[in-house]
């Protein structure tokens, strides 16, 4: 089946026997972290439009990242810390 994404895949892939799903899995983190090149991003988007397992693993990975950035509590900085830093600096110079 010759679709847009297989063309895109052929254009950029040098790796020969890697399947599209493997390739998508390999760049999943890049996509999630906003580090993918525009070609990678395009290839990725085209593939997950047609591939349910890859679409789902993308959803999962994105959820994981958003849970960490959204739900992980920040610890409160002790009140005295900034003051102790300044004091120690003045003592040592």
């Amino acid at each position: 089946m010759e679709t847009g994404f297989t063309e895109a895949y052929k254009k950029m892939s040098e790796e020969g026997n890697e399947t599209d799903c493997e390739k998508v899995a390999g760049i999943l983190d890049l996509v999630i972290d906003g580090e993918a090149s525009s070609e990678e991003q395009y290839f990725f988007n085209s593939h997950i439009e047609e591939c349910v397992p890859c679409f789902e693993s993308h959803q999962k990975q994105r959820l994981l990242k958003s849970i960490i950035s959204g739900h992980l509590k920040r610890v409160i900085v002790p009140e005295r810390l900034a003051h102790s830093i300044k004091t120690r600096i003045q003592e040592t110079v």
Binding site: R74, V75, V77, P78, L81, A82, S84, I85, R88, I89
Partner: peptide, 26 residues
């Protein structure tokens, strides 16, 4: 300071160690 202290805490998992580490860093 705040992100740095949080990082120190997540590394050491101890408030006193995080405190020391941040002071040393500064």
């Amino acid at each position: 300071l705040a992100p740095l202290y949080n990082f120190a805490y997540r590394l050491t998992l101890d408030e006193d160690d995080a405190n020391d580490l941040v002071q040393e860093t500064y």
